[in-house]
Design a protein around this nucleic acid. Structure first.
Lengths: 248, 248
DNA sequence: CGTGGAATTGACACCCGTCAATGACTGTGG
DNA sequence: CCACAGTCATTGACGGGTGTCAATTCCACG
């Protein structure tokens, strides 16, 4: 709720192409991303239409209201996507990780902002080039549709959470969601890393940092988790956590 | 919050094909729906792959957990889409109207339920047939992607509402959203019809019926609306309403 | 005119937000 | 290596907005 402290975002200028030679061929994010819809023989074509960029932690990637010129593919790191009310109230609508797509835009301007939580690597597509690729690889368009449907399902789960769950239930759902996400990416999920701040978590769950903190403490006291520093959680009772997340 | 009263839903059996001769050619919903992606010469093919059905008010259209065999297109009436927690807490995730698409499913089962609020007409596609159509008409797949992106934007607005807006702001946003929707469909929006109950509105806005009712009364006292029965609202100060919806 | 469900209104409680103080951690410079 | 500053996380006290429970009131329909 304190816009001043969170608005210390690095300028977009900090965000420069790396001119990397990173090949799509070996990209770890590819099987999890839209690019999985591109056949092997199309990889060179794909490579030719993408720019690899990195953004330091706290850097801005795109802003609500900006002309929607690009679409992105997250290849590493964590991104927070959010919307603001005029008075500064913030709702984080998602945390993006490896393979996630960023930049669905209905109109010609973005309807949300995106910032790097950690250092982030991205593949950037200009919209016309993306159009070309989609034309060329129907599998990619299908894949994009599938990812949009998936995003929609995640959004609907979040609506249920925001509209009807208690603070405890929200945090439990969040921790399990993160763990599941890491597991799907084939990464260790039990000492669970939390790259984002309490304020980010609070704004994702529709709570305040204080309430999030209290819920963490409560989980600790109930023997559901242990905290290994503020940004690493060990889940010691997954079933119990799941029961709480489901409202039992 | 009272599951008993809202669970008096007509059985799915009530929901029978009308064997209607209604032609896609003349369908009023078409320009607003996925079918707008089908070229004129493909209309007969489209017609051959769709079943027209109607559901009476309070009828069930599909249920969370059911095998996702069909996709639907709303051609008239209002549908409520919702998710439930095990203890009965409900979150309405959307109201669908003419042209809206229903049945994006990531997995092989639906992740939400849908019921008719009013009597509803639908075009039903079996999933394999939908696949065929999408294959045949790339414009339709593009259109579907566009609609998914639009749904996503609506979902994100709702997240901001649920996570960060007050009861007043939620109701104001809701009324304006409904009015905008009707306007886009070319229908009169100022004596604004509310086909759904207070309980439906409450479960959409993450509130209780009592709080919704109090917010209506407050708007009435503030000269922002007049109520013409419980299900028709006249918006008498659109600018004022917009200011409230935006959090000013 | 009577009936039943929905909507409204009132009284009160409670969860979570607000405000404020303290504690933990990180990085920097002496 | 330590002192210090700055930020973030935690904890406490308290208040308010919304939920809960209950009583009318309204209205559609027989």
């Amino acid at each position: 709720m304190n816009p001043m402290s969170r608005d210390q975002v690095l300028p977009t200028a900090a965000f420069a192409p790396t001119c990397s030679t990173a090949e799509c061929q070996e990209c770890e994010a590819r099987p999890h991303s839209v690019c999985a819809g591109v056949p092997e023989h199309g990889i060179r074509e794909l490579e030719a239409n993408v720019t690899h960029v990195t953004t330091p932690a706290r850097g801005s990637i795109l802003m609500e209201g900006d002309a929607a010129q690009h679409m992105f593919n997250v290849t590493s790191g964590t991104v927070r996507v959010y919307k603001l009310l005029p008075d500064g109230r913030r709702q984080v609508i998602g945390f993006l990780m490896t393979g996630d797509f960023l930049g669905f835009a209905v109109r010609d301007v973005y309807a949300y902002s995106a910032e790097a939580v950690t250092e982030v690597s991205l593949c950037r597509f200009s919209r016309p080039r993306m159009e070309t690729l989609l034309q060329q690889f129907p599998g990619m368009e299908k894949r994009l549709l599938g990812m949009a449907a998936n995003e929609l399902a995640i959004a609907q789960d979040l609506m249920l959470l925001l509209g009807r769950k208690t603070a405890r239930e929200r945090l439990a759902s969040f921790l399990l969601m993160l763990a599941e996400r890491l597991t799907r990416l084939g990464r260790p999920a039990n000492p669970l890393p939390l790259p984002m701040s309490r304020s980010d978590i609070a704004d994702y769950l529709g709570l305040t940092t204080e309430t999030v903190s209290r819920a963490f403490t409560q989980f600790k006291n109930d023997g559901l988790i242990t905290l290994e520093g503020a940004d690493t959680v060990r889940l010691t009772d997954l079933d119990g956590m799941q029961d709480i997340a489901d409202g039992n």
